[in-house]
């Protein structure tokens, strides 16, 4: 597999949210606006990239049986770094994302990629895989956030393009499920075509 394919697969073919259905909790929980979705995506991207890189570097020093616990520690470390840095430098966003930042640690994508990809492949491939998957995740969350924000608050990235209230249900919890459901349906159609 060429590195380009390795990178690009995260967007459509193996998009973590739309196709693999991983990391749905943050995808549903924080996407009431496009900005929140993007911030969450970028935070996850950072954790994914860093943990993939570190895991592929240390994989040979870790005995087989304690592999998973060691990976979890590595991931949790980067999650905490993101948590602290965001609290200090982007407090508004940090407050919005709240609980979902520490929960990146149990996001199935991160451990899944470390275990399935980075613990077997080279440093370079792991890095590109992390970047591709992370960007795919960011793309999915931003898309979902934009759709919900456009329909729910008639604005995009905080920019109001029309007066009025929009369809409120889309910024409420039920709207998250419904919007994601239809996006996945669209994605399925797109894949087949």
């Amino acid at each position: 597999m060429s590195q380009w394919k390795n990178f690009a697969k995260g967007f459509v073919k193996e998009n973590p949210v739309f196709v693999l259905l991983l990391g749905l909790c943050p995808a549903l929980g924080v996407t009431s606006t496009a900005i929140n979705g993007m911030a969450m995506g970028l935070a996850t991207l950072f954790v994914l990239l860093m943990s993939n890189m570190v895991v592929s570097l240390i994989k040979n020093f870790i005995p087989e049986k304690v592999r998973i616990p060691s990976f979890i520690v590595v991931i949790a470390t980067f999650v905490t770094v993101v948590d602290l840095v965001m609290a200090g430098y982007a407090p508004a966003v940090h407050e919005q994302l709240g609980l979902f930042i520490p929960l990146i640690v149990v996001n199935c994508i991160v451990l899944g990629r470390a275990e399935a990809f980075a613990s077997r492949k080279s440093f370079m491939s792991s890095m590109i895989d992390g970047l591709g998957m992370g960007l795919g995740f960011t793309f999915a969350l931003t898309l979902l956030g934009s759709v919900r924000e456009i329909l729910g608050s008639l604005s995009i990235f905080g920019f109001k393009f029309m007066e009025g209230d929009g369809i409120l249900v889309f910024i409420l919890p039920p709207g998250a499920f419904i919007a994601l459901g239809y996006l996945i349906a669209l994605m399925n159609k797109f894949k087949k075509a």
Binding site: I58, N60, F61, I62, P63, E64, K65, V66, P69, S70, V73, V74, A76, T77
Partner: peptide
Amino acid sequence: MAKKESTFINMVATLFIVTLVAS
């Protein structure tokens, strides 16, 4: 390079070092 064996000492040492570095 061969993977390290999963002996008791190895496992404890690895986990210890990993958590130490992390914290």
